[in-house]
Design a protein around this nucleic acid. Sequence first.
DNA 1: CTTCTCACA
DNA 2: TGTGAGTA
Length: 111
Amino acid sequence: MSERELRRNLAILPIGTVRELTLLSDRQIRYYEQNELIMPNRGAGGQRRFSLNDVDRLLEIKDFLDAGDSIKDIQEIFAKQHRIALEKHDSELALRRSLQKEFAQIGRFGR
DNA sequence: CTTCTCACA
DNA sequence: TGTGAGTA
């Protein structure tokens, strides 16, 4: 994983900061967590720790809600996004393997 | 002072 | 979703 990805996944923001960043109430943020739309880490004392990705996700949730989508609709949207991300990962992995194989062939002919 | 969970005149 | 109670 790149350093940039690790940084975006660093969960260190307390709910108060996230509340101001997203303009959502802490009540809403906890409610979305109950509905598995977000799953922040937990720190000392059971306090939630959010990452920048969590903040982006909350912003998306707010937009979808404003657009009229229900909690369940958003759950499905995220599930679909997750499937697409997995497929993309698999296809890229397959491409790397086939290219690696072809280069190996070229290497043998060049000898 | 901030956050957490739980309950609801 | 909001709010108040009682904690940690």
